[in-house]
């Protein structure tokens, strides 16, 4: 187990380096000069520009910049924003908790509602309940999140007046409910479908028949025997989903005016703030990698036949 985790952690290193390098390359290739943009309409002082670039290390060749960035990163230094002179680490520290709260909220919604719906439908394959779940999830998957976001905002905030259209206070869970539902809906549909398929398939398995023959109560058969065996594909999906949720927060946070990571990335992209974008994407990549490791370890918990030497 320990050796397996160590090996996986080592394997993460090239993936981590590769992903950050790719993002760094893209940001380097961005057109426009963020330092020059500071001046707006004012007359440009070339000496001053050169001085600012030198202090930020922007006059260095690409590979040197990447190396400096990496070494800084390992010391917890995410670089400095060009326009505001604020350390990127502070910007991230402001925005990150908000997005984490939103994402975890969306994630819980996905897991609880998705698995419940999936189990309900999976236990009754090819009935009306099952068919309507398939139609409902198909509709959810085909509606892009920005469409769903504005539809919900229009219906629940403007027409019914149940919630505020914008999130003014990111500490308020009531206000975060609507954005979390919108953010989690796509994953919810996938989770429900995966659970449904998996349960419906395992329902015919021999061990279920044995459990029924033994006279076990239905709750135990479904809750212990069936669920544990059926959840592996769902857990696989959920593991890769947390990173995707954080990436998808760009759209949801924009609609509901949540000042989280997505909002910050979008702002930074339009202002060509390379260091902020790279910093946030790097963090999301790390979260993704850690989640996929956790998922692999969870397999062994769910299925004792899987052992890691």
């Amino acid at each position: 187990m320990g050796r397996y985790v160590a090996r996986r952690l080592l394997q993460m290193i090239p993936v981590f380096l590769g992903s950050t390098f790719l993002i760094f390359c893209m940001m380097y290739a961005l057109p426009g000069d963020p330092v020059r943009a500071l001046y707006g309409d004012q007359a440009i002082d070339e000496a001053q520009i050169a001085a600012i670039k030198q202090s930020l290390g922007l006059d260095q060749p690409f590979m040197v910049q990447y190396w400096n960035y990496l070494t800084g990163l390992f010391q917890g230094d995410f670089g400095t924003q060009i326009a505001s002179q604020q350390p990127v680490a502070d910007v991230i520290a402001d925005a990150f908790p908000i997005t984490v709260r939103l994402t975890v909220f969306a994630f819980l919604f996905t897991v609880v509602v998705g698995i419940t719906l999936g189990v309900i439908a999976g236990l009754r394959p090819n009935t009306v309940v099952d068919k309507s779940l398939l139609v409902l999830t198909l509709l959810l998957i085909s509606v892009p999140s920005f469409v769903l976001g504005y539809t919900f905002q229009y219906v629940f905030a403007f027409q019914l007046g149940w919630v505020d259209p914008n999130v003014n206070d990111p500490e308020n869970y009531g206000q975060l409910l609507l954005p979390a539902v919108v953010l989690g809906s796509l994953s919810l549909a996938y989770v429900a479908r995966l659970t449904r398929t998996s349960i419906a398939e395992n329902l015919r398995a021999d061990y279920v028949r044995t459990a029924v023959a033994k006279g076990l109560p239905r709750r135990r058969i479904v809750g212990i025997h069936l669920m544990r065996n059926s959840l592996i594909p769902v857990v696989t999906f959920l593991g890769s989903d947390l990173g995707a949720l954080m990436g998808g927060a760009v759209v949801t946070e924009g609609i509901f005016n949540v000042r989280g990571v997505g909002y910050t990335v979008y702002e930074a992209l339009t202002r060509r703030e390379g260091s902020t974008v790279v910093g946030i994407v790097t963090l999301i990549v790390i979260i993704y990698l850690v989640c996929s490791l956790l998922v692999d370890l969870l397999y062994a918990v769910l299925d004792p036949r899987i052992r890691y030497a």
Partner: peptide, 23 residues
């Protein structure tokens, strides 16, 4: 390993970054 690197980047965010490099 290359596949791992590319799938580590969140799709929407990555696409946004790539596309802002074009005017």
């Amino acid at each position: 390993r290359l596949t791992d690197v590319f799938s580590g980047i969140p799709f929407m965010l990555g696409a946004m970054v790539v596309l802002t490099t074009f005017t």
